[in-house]
Amino acid sequence: MIRIQAEDFDVGAEMAAMNGDGDVGALASFVGLVRGGKGDEKIGAMTLEHYPGMTEKKLAQIEAEARTRWPLEDCLIIHRFGRLEPGERIVMVITASSHRQAALEACAFLIDWLKTSAPFWKLEERSGGEEWVEARASDDQAAEKWAANK
């Protein structure tokens, strides 16, 4: 399931809601937060912009891909947009499977692919002004690793 929303979410409630049909033996999760940074890297807040429509489409494709690769009982991706302050939650991925390996691997796959194919952009508020976060080559490499392992 995919949810794109401005509002926060309850990590515990979302985990508890992952039931599958009774054959779930493992839940894996990832929660991404706004990093405040230190010294010159400190940020006051971050505004996430996205492409409504394409965001839902890409996330649904990524979820479908994960479900073809691993035997998942359930899968949830929540991604927030709008202005968020340091410490606030940005994203959550939960995967449910019968066994831990599928849940852990699928969770790592999903979060790596979110970085490189979900149409979000981050504008940071710094002491010197606003700055767009640039995509990192290491994120591309992390996603490509999964393409190579297909």
Binding site: G32, M54, H79, K115, A118, P119, F120, W132, E134
Partner: peptide
């Protein structure tokens, strides 16, 4: 058609 910088989700 959409034009944008490289994406930075997650």
């Amino acid at each position: 058609v959409a034009l944008f910088p490289p994406v930075t989700g997650g």
